[in-house]
Design a binder for these strands. Structure first.
Lengths: 342, 342
DNA sequence: GTGAAAGCGCTAACAT
DNA sequence: ATGTTAGCGCTTTCAC
């Protein structure tokens, strides 16, 4: 017995292909395919072992590009979000990646940075890359169907609560969620409840405004002040300052995102106000950041994981011809201290 | 002139290929290629116009899988991070996506969830998908070169400050950054400065501990208490509580991540302590969350964008044979209020 | 300036 | 149970 450092593997020449494996194992390329894919034909155990051995010895890994070309599917999906550094979207992206991975799909991530043109560009680019579908999640968007239909790729709208004709979409019940939060605030005895409303481009109506309205109306309360501001920490900060400076200062604020609430919190702290004593606060999203603010934020939790799974299923399970579904998830109120609860 | 709703585009049959375009434009497929790729041969302006027109009319989009198969490159890179919902990593991922997109590359994102096995699996999976390279960013990892070399794909380590033989890597000067933060705390007159040290798996030594040590030694101060805890909000919270309960309570804490500092902040608030009066705080990362905590955190900012660009360059620009580079970026102290500054 | 054709690595229908 | 082979859509060399 002689030892050799290099076994009979091919030398420094390029990547190992299925042909190399076939030759090494002394079988045909078809058999290698059957072994690798577990079908569509059965292979004798002995042969299979030989092939597996050859695969291992040669360090063979199938070429996904070739497979994608042949099969017309790359087992890859695209995701377009406004901003992966926004905690809500990063959470969503993580959940989508996980859901996709569970089904054997990889995730190509792109940020649109809140830019409609970039969003469209990303969708097209993804389509050109032969992804099997694209999940688009945008606060900004009111999908002109025309925007994506030319993309020739299945699209599902994630985080999209307004019904979008012609598209699969999954969203959250904004109206009910917001209403629950505002009603909770009302339960604490507040009667002047402001709304820090995130600004969407497009003219579609955000259910959170409606929910706030409904809760107030339901309790026979007057409409509190409303300030429109971006869905960001900075936006919230500005909104907070404006609300404090206003004539009829509210005693509670409902913010349409956790990030805004965090900004409002800063404005409140700077003004020396105590939360929730001097000003109560509730928000929307349920991101981790809300749990560790001071005081911890009472917030409407979006079921990101479930939504992500639904979006991936809608995309992958889609028979293409199916009539578009519009999935709405309930959002539950996560009660912490910013609202006045102990 | 007659109007038609449907122009002479192919009917409901499958995707348009280069062949269809060629036929429609009355040229060969080679010419279509030349036009699409702007080379390698020149095409007569008139012909080019015809082809462009055909492309537009038919809505042709090149098949990336075929291109990747032929060229052996998918113009795609993979990214492996521990957790995209961690603000530092989501920021990094965003920056990597941007840097890749600028060079025409798409980004496949995967989370390892702090799991070494999953990390390896992800790298292999990405390699099988014919990505042109993989960027791995892991707090966990001490790359056993063997782990990735079998992946047969270029790997660059991002967010990796210890030198890893055989790998390109880009990281930040942990020692200097930490030292700067601790020295700043010392400048405020503190003499008992604790360290909330993030726990890495593997036994590699984290420079932040060294930096803390150096700053204390340099000022002739005794070693403060040290508590080892995960790089998370929860970890920080636990560390904060332990530090408060300890015998020799420090007057300042240096935390190795913003997330930990946020957790510590919560422990401090719950104990009714005022920051920075009763306890000063500084941390590491420079994420957006640090800016909007209360009080805003003094933190060592990692240049995520620059690091991401460097990593992408190292991966794409890499001639494969080049000797591995080890890039270390400086991290600058972002002074806010948690340290005691006004 | 344009075209014909080989072949990238893989799958699966069709032979054997 | 295993082998042969056409062809997925593209790029590019080589001929014209």
């Amino acid at each position: 017995m002689y030892s050799m450092t290099m076994s009979a593997v091919p030398g420094p020449r390029g990547p190992v292909t299925r042909k190399d494996v076939a030759r090494f194992a002394g079988v045909s390329t078809a058999v290698v395919s059957y072994v690798v894919n577990g079908g569509p034909k059965r292979v004798a155990p002995a042969t299979e072992a030989k092939v597996q051995d050859a695969i291992r010895r040669l360090g063979y890994r199938p070429n996904a590009a070739a497979r994608a070309l042949k099969l017309g599917s790359s087992e890859t999906i695209g995701l377009v979000i406004p901003d992966n550094s926004n905690p809500f979207f990063s959470l969503l992206a993580h959940a989508v990646e996980e859901a996709a991975a569970e089904r054997g799909y990889a995730l190509v991530l792109t940020n649109s940075d809140g830019n409609v043109a970039k969003e469209r560009r990303n969708v097209r680019n993804l389509a050109a890359r032969q992804v099997d579908g694209v999940i688009v999640s945008s606060v900004l968007m009111e999908p002109g169907a025309a925007d994506f239909e030319s993309a020739e790729v299945p699209v599902v709208l994630l985080n999209h609560s307004a019904e979008a004709p012609g598209f699969n979409s999954v969203g959250v019940d904004l109206v009910a969620g917001a209403r629950a939060a505002v009603e909770h605030l009302i339960g604490h005895g507040h009667t002047r409840i402001a709304l820090a409303m995130g600004t969407n481009t497009g003219n579609y109506y955000d259910g959170r405004e409606e929910g706030w309205l409904q809760a107030l109306a339901g309790a026979g309360l007057p409409e509190g002040p409303i300030v429109r501001t971006p869905f960001t920490r900075e936006g919230g900060y500005a909104a907070g300052k404006r609300l404090l400076a206003g004539a009829e200062r509210p005693t509670a604020i409902f913010a349409t995102s956790d990030l805004q609430a965090v900004g409002i919190l800063r404005a409140l702290h700077e003004a020396g106000l105590s939360v929730p004593k001097d000003m109560a606060l509730a928000s929307f999203d349920g991101s981790a950041e809300a749990e560790y603010s001071w005081p911890p934020l009472t917030t409407v939790r979006q079921p990101a994981k479930a939504m992500a799974e639904a979006a991936v299923n809608a995309l992958i399970g889609t028979g293409r011809g199916n009539t578009p579904e519009h999935l709405i998830f309930p959002a539950d109120l996560q009660v912490r201290q910013s609202c006045g609860c102990p």
